[in-house]
Amino acid sequence: MDAMELSGRIVARAAARGISIAVAESLTGGLVAETLVRTPGASVVLRLGVVAYATEMKEQVLHVPSDLLEERGPVDPDVAIWMARGVRHLAALDRSACTIGVATTGVAGPGAQDDHAPGEFHIGIELETVDGLRSHASSHFEPGDREQVREAALLAALRELDAALERTDLVMHSESKG
């Protein structure tokens, strides 16, 4: 399934269930949010998209802990989870909550960053379920040029969103008006 097919499936399923989504992006630079926005009906489910490309923005805007960033740097699965958590909280400024936060962080290339090879990326997700918050990260490596890595990260993030929507215990929050 390509990115637009996945996006269509995500938007339709989230809208049907009253699920809200927020996206925090680094290496994808807005591709995940842009892909969702290109899908008719996205305004019903997409609450927020943030591009936090600089490390200090991850800390200051998304509230990734400074000690985590200092210890491991921005290319880390736990950083991805914190980014997802931060954007989910930001998306809830005007109401009680946002159901799903998803985030991308990694190295698109062409060079390495802090001993991380080009092509390494992490997808973080945080979900609000009826039994509380659930979060996890997936780690990936995609050889190729910058655009191939960014496209792989886009698809991985969309697949994580699609998989999250398989859950039957997600809390409903969608009331967005685009």
Rank of each mutant, 00 (worst) to 15 (best):
residue 97 A to V: 06
residue 45 V to R: 04
residue 50 V to K: 04
residue 111 G to C: 01
residue 144 G to V: 05
residue 13 R to W: 06
residue 67 D to V: 06
residue 161 L to K: 05
residue 152 A to M: 05
residue 99 T to Y: 01
residue 10 I to C: 08
residue 17 R to V: 03
residue 108 A to Y: 04
residue 158 L to Q: 01
residue 6 L to A: 13
residue 164 A to R: 00
residue 124 G to P: 02
residue 20 S to T: 01
residue 99 T to G: 02
residue 169 D to H: 12
residue 159 R to A: 14
residue 77 P to T: 05
residue 105 T to P: 01
residue 41 G to F: 07
residue 88 R to T: 05
residue 82 W to Q: 15
residue 57 M to C: 05
residue 141 F to Y: 15
residue 21 I to V: 14
residue 24 A to Q: 10
residue 98 C to F: 00
residue 82 W to M: 12
residue 82 W to S: 10
residue 81 I to V: 15
residue 46 L to F: 04
residue 40 P to V: 08
residue 97 A to T: 08
residue 70 E to P: 02
residue 19 I to F: 05
residue 80 A to D: 04
residue 154 L to P: 09
residue 131 D to F: 09
residue 23 V to L: 09
residue 69 L to R: 04
residue 174 S to Y: 05
residue 15 A to C: 13
residue 141 F to P: 12
residue 126 E to P: 05
residue 103 A to M: 02
residue 103 A to S: 15
residue 146 R to E: 11
residue 101 G to Y: 03
residue 65 P to G: 03
residue 158 L to K: 07
residue 69 L to I: 02
residue 41 G to Q: 02
residue 100 I to F: 07
residue 51 V to N: 12
residue 162 D to L: 03
residue 169 D to G: 06
residue 14 A to F: 06
residue 174 S to M: 11
residue 110 P to Q: 09
residue 163 A to F: 15
residue 161 L to G: 08
residue 156 A to E: 11
residue 84 A to S: 07
residue 70 E to N: 14
residue 123 I to C: 09
residue 81 I to D: 00
residue 148 Q to N: 03
residue 109 G to W: 01
residue 42 A to Y: 08
residue 148 Q to C: 05
residue 89 H to S: 10
residue 11 V to Y: 06
residue 150 R to S: 10
residue 134 R to Q: 15
residue 3 A to P: 09
residue 105 T to V: 03
residue 118 P to I: 04
residue 116 H to L: 10
residue 132 G to E: 03
residue 178 G to E: 10
residue 140 H to D: 08
residue 146 R to D: 10
residue 106 G to D: 02
residue 86 G to Q: 02
residue 37 V to K: 03
residue 9 R to W: 14
residue 141 F to L: 12
residue 59 E to A: 15
residue 105 T to C: 05
residue 152 A to Y: 04
residue 17 R to P: 10
residue 75 V to G: 07
residue 151 E to Q: 14
residue 15 A to Y: 09
residue 158 L to C: 04
residue 85 R to I: 10
residue 57 M to W: 08
residue 35 T to Y: 01
residue 64 V to I: 05
residue 117 A to Q: 09
residue 142 E to L: 06
residue 105 T to Q: 02
residue 54 A to L: 15
residue 7 S to Y: 07
residue 170 L to H: 02
residue 155 L to F: 08
residue 53 Y to M: 06
residue 156 A to W: 00
residue 38 R to E: 14
residue 89 H to Q: 14
residue 45 V to A: 01
residue 44 V to C: 12
residue 78 D to H: 14
residue 38 R to Q: 14
residue 91 A to D: 00
residue 111 G to H: 06
residue 53 Y to S: 12
residue 36 L to W: 03
residue 107 V to G: 09
residue 20 S to K: 00
residue 16 A to T: 10
residue 28 T to E: 09
residue 25 E to Q: 00
residue 146 R to C: 04
residue 141 F to G: 06
residue 24 A to E: 13
residue 74 P to L: 12
residue 69 L to S: 03
residue 64 V to L: 08
residue 120 E to I: 14
